[in-house]
């Protein structure tokens, strides 16, 4: 398993990015964790629908998304808010969806990130089609799809890997193997030792790495993105990581895993090892930590205000959103709702 930065913050390989860039990505991971904790907190107050926390997976998401060009496509899941935010999807819209507002699915025009996939697996195929279409149109935009290890049990994982391989689409498959699909652990999910090895069955390179290591993630993603942009086909990356929190705020993880196991993974925290590395390089102190936490916290607080401040959609917005022009069926249903006092 590829590792460049140990949990102690020591290098065991060449860092793929310099110290200023490492500081920027560290700050992004800090911001993502603040968002994640804030979202979890306000969900407990009943202000969000079920929330799926990503704590522990910040390096896998931030380190991979940091490699992308701003116009690249991203198709991710409900647990990939940090990656989506890195690619330009605003926190307030990610929160808006969780407050129960469809406008959360509508990122700004310059952001090529699809709204998060809630069902598991089907979205991987979309990243194949997106990258394929870009190549057909003469563009070198690539597409990355994020998914968990559980999604590799879905048939669409197989179909997506195969389509991408046969047609050499510029797609990066980024699997965050966070050990659990809700309660189902790896042993009940698959009989292979790794996910990366599945790539071989499709004629695609597979890379397995320490997903809590920002440098390893960045390095592998850089290679995969370069390969994709160079029309050399897809790559499967297995970022081995851990979901510190529950599957969602409705889940009780004590039913299927031990506190010792969680504590062991906490000791491999993706933020702490970068912090130690920066400190060793004289690029971190407590004052800066407080400064970035303050600023990132303010951004998250503002996002909560914006999300909660969105007007409740009226019925017209619903009828008008199904097609470019509402069908005659929808128009008569709209009149019916009005006549019934809705």
């Amino acid at each position: 398993m590829l590792q460049i930065l140990t949990p102690e913050g020591e290098l065991v390989g060449d860092p793929p990015i310099d110290v200023p860039m490492t500081r920027r990505l560290y700050r992004a991971m800090v911001g993502a964790r603040l968002y994640d904790r804030k979202a979890t907190a306000i969900q407990k107050q009943g202000r969000l629908a079920t929330y799926a926390p990503f704590e522990g997976q910040e390096a896998a998401q931030v380190g991979s998304a940091a490699v992308l060009r701003p116009d690249d496509w991203m198709v991710a899941t409900y647990r990939d808010a940090a990656a989506m935010w890195m690619q330009g999807y605003p926190w307030e819209l990610l929160l808006a969806g969780r407050t129960g507002h469809e406008r959360g699915g509508s990122p700004p025009d310059y952001v090529n990130v699809l709204p998060p996939s809630i069902t598991v697996g089907a979205h991987m195929l979309h990243a194949v089609g997106l990258a394929w279409a870009e190549r057909l149109q003469g563009n070198d935009r690539i597409a990355v799809t994020y998914f968990g290890e559980g999604a590799t049990s879905e048939g669409d994982f197989h179909e997506a890997m195969n389509f991408a391989a046969v047609h050499r689409t510029g797609t990066v498959f980024l699997c965050q193997n966070n050990q659990y699909a809700i309660s189902t652990g790896l042993n009940a999910q698959m009989a292979t030792d790794t996910i990366a090895q599945k790539a071989g069955a499709y004629g695609v390179p597979g890379v397995r790495l320490d997903g809590n290591d920002l440098f390893a993630v960045y390095w592998a993603m850089k290679n995969a993105v370069d390969r994709a942009r160079g029309s050399n086909g897809p790559t499967l990356i297995e970022a081995v990581t851990y979901r510190i929190g529950p599957h969602t705020t409705s889940d009780d993880p004590t039913r299927y895993r031990t506190n010792e196991e969680v504590d062991d993974w906490r000791s491999r925290d993706p933020l702490e090892r970068v912090r130690r590395y920066l400190e060793l390089n004289g690029a971190w102190d407590e004052e800066w930590q407080k400064h970035i936490e303050g600023e990132e916290s303010a951004v998250v607080e503002r996002a909560v205000e914006l999300a909660e401040g969105l007007n409740t959609p009226d019925a017209d917005e619903l009828f008008d959103s199904m097609f470019a022009e509402p069908t005659s069926d929808l128009e008569s249903q709209r009149r019916l709702l009005e006549s019934e006092g809705g």
Partner: peptide, 26 residues
């Protein structure tokens, strides 16, 4: 072959990739 595409035998794959293509402007 880029415009009349023989797809692998996978209906979900055909519709799922075509969906991605449509989103990207095809």
């Amino acid at each position: 072959p880029d415009r009349v595409i023989d797809a692998p035998v996978a209906e979900s794959g055909i519709i799922g990739t075509a969906f991605g293509m449509a989103v990207a402007g095809m």
